[in-house]
Design a protein around this nucleic acid. Sequence first.
RNA 1: GCCGAGGUGGCGGAAUCGGUAGACGCGACGGACUUAAAAUCCGUUGGGGAGUAUACCCAUGCGGGUUCGAGUCCCGCCCUCGGCACCA
Length: 817
Amino acid sequence: MSDRRAGDYKPQEIEQKWQQRWAEDRLYEVTEDDPRPKRYELTMFPYTSGDLHIGHWYAMAPSDVHARFMRMRGYNVLHPMGFDAFGLPAENAAISRGIHPYTWTMDNIDRMRRQLRSLGAIYDWNREVITCQPEYYRWTQWFFLKLYEAGLAYRAKAPVNWCPNCQTVLANEQVVGEGFCERCGAPVSRKDLEQWFFRITNYSDELLDFSKIEWPARIETMQRNWVGRSEGVEIFFGLDGGGEFSVFTTRPDTIYGVTFVVFAPEHPLVEQLTTAGQRDEVTRYVEQARRQSEIERTSTERDKSGVFTGSYAVNKLNGDKVPIWIADYVLMSYGTGAVMAVPAHDQRDFEFAERYGIPVRVVIAPPGWAGEDLTEAYVEPGTMVNSARFDGIGSIEGIDAVADHMEATACGRRTVSYRLRDWLISRQRYWGAPIPMVYCDKCGIVPVPETDLPVLLPEDAEFKPTGESPLKYCESFVNAACPACGGPAQRETDTMDTFMCSSWYFLRYASAGCDHAAFDRDKLKYWLPVDQYTGGAEHAVMHLLYSRFFVKALRDMGIVDFDEPFIRLFNQGIIVIERQKMSKSKGRVVNPDEYVAELGADAVRAYLMFIGPWEQGGEWDDRGIKGIARWLNRVRDLALGDYREAQPDPAETKGLRRLTHKTIKKATDDLERFHFNTMIAAFMEFTNHLGRVRDEGSVETAAWQEAIDVLLLLLAPTAPHLAEELWTASGHAYSIHNQPFPSWDPQLTAEEEFTLVVQVNGKLRDRVTAPVTITEEEARELALSRERIQPYVNDREIRRVIYVPRRLVNVVVADGS
RNA sequence: GCCGAGGUGGCGGAAUCGGUAGACGCGACGGACUUAAAAUCCGUUGGGGAGUAUACCCAUGCGGGUUCGAGUCCCGCCCUCGGCACCA
């Protein structure tokens, strides 16, 4: 034993040594003139919120393992890293601690970069990108100009959270409880501001097309629901006092059941529709509605509320005059901001009508309906009744029949509505890329010429909580010459949403540092699109949808020539402590550094992969990592210790070779599917077997040597330092990371025997070893001849015998009674 | 509330296509080594009942269903987590 354990495994020494060597040899730097096929493996870049915690490692380590696996499989792998560096937390830190956001952010980056280096990943640091640096945000601004030129950027009024006490715009995160300011506790209101939008809705239909990408079904479903396409009819209603408005509905077949109409409280017509007698009540209601969040407003759980405006709408199909109400469950941002209410066939409308005593008129008869009152809305298909000329038609056909009639009589038109809204990118903040626009009294809105980019953030801005971008009070920034006429003008003082920065960072990695353009076109053509993207599922809709939009818009401008940014996607779960997400503010963070110092990065990497399915995340429990450290020590003992062949047994030798090749296959399959936890378990079974074999000396030396070499090669992506150390220490040439990933021999993995399960009525009653060549006939006979099943079969009638090849025989007998 | 995912031993989890439930690891217990401890190694470890056996019964959030057979499929419920457009 002692010769095998020459000393303790000291990860601190070997990890530093190899990291240094790899860096000196530029082992992981990649170029575009490489003969191997390219492979772009991207991990979502971290936000620069402070030190890396174990959750970051959970995102980075397994994706590095996958990238290393692809590298060993012969690809020229780009696996870059960078930092998402603009955003609210830096500004908050600046206000609370008096540190400039740039300083705070760059200090964080320095620490995070050092931590990331200790991970031992194959990042090519020459390609690092940092979104808050002028060399980067210059191009973020350039993309804004391109979108503006393409007609995809426009200005419109939109509400922001507003604290009247602090005179400040609040992020949703800063609104606590049921609408109170995080700082002062005052009730938060909404305030309309002129802001910039991108027309992502121009791409609604294309964003629903996933045919060019291989994404998890659930992410596609979430995006599909987020875009929320529905086909329906825009119906025109008359106003009693003259005029017209429209509603959107997917159920034109229920038009004769309309007994009221509901407007969103912020609908522009509300002001003019409100009669003098209703004004106070309406005003009060509008104010309270503006304090509610959309989640509260659209909750189907709470009681519906609303107020009558005093005005009436005219249903053009039957001339009915119906009251116009306002209610907060109707949102201005969906459809036309007004709905026709059909209480008999919509549950929200039903509850509303019940509460306010509005009539319920059944127009779709449920099967067997005899005219009785409904106790809830009937939303299923039925037969049209009380619907004039449409009576008797099935409601499904009725949808088209009514729509046709409306189009023929100009009462409505077929249309498609989307839940997706245009992307609001204006932020009334300092720490973001300035929007490169100038407002001139003479020339109006004028884009900053490309040659004048970047519009630099002034370093001396003050962070007064004024409610507006601190840039507004920075005269040297605001005052500018109009690019068109040269006269006095003011700069736009809002900055861009940080999702803008992260919508194109993956393009920048292809030629980071390129100073004449956002990217080098040839290099982009070589690397893009991303072959494999990994990151948290929390980005399922926003970031991933924005990036898709961005690429499609750039494609239409001829800037890129592909349709989708990320061909394959994998979302890992989150790592939790005591079932809760890691949170810096709540002091619930695990810092990987101490574990790296004590047990090594390899142990942390392997443990994170072993905790559970990567897709689902898991609980960090530092007792578990000891098991991994013990296992890595055993691997070391196996690789460095002597093997003494005692009495080689051909069956044992064959068995070891079979396990060796089965483990290669298992590792390959699992790596392809990101099933890291079962891969590590298979490695452990392999090493457990090797330990037994070593103690017995029961296999031929060549088989032993093959097994050890395979073990190290399979381990190289997971534990890159230890694998390199053991590879070179056992006499192989540096570097293991330039070796091909092993392949398995299907003949060697083939089993000769299997366990045939014998069931009676589906219950396990016996097991018997059988050759894999057994025929169905033989298997049935073997099963029926087993003594152990006799008491269950007895003299009962055998009704069926089910045979599942290489698994089981199930004898189905009649009931005992 | 809406959209999406999940619920299996004391714990993390395995079971890839409807076919042996609990792989692998942690923890716990027992043993070896040691003056002792740590480390390491060996063994046991879902529950019941039973008493030494390849036996039996129960068991994958709860209640139903489909099937020769359900952790896996269907229906209804409960609970937990992610997102909900200004955290990123």
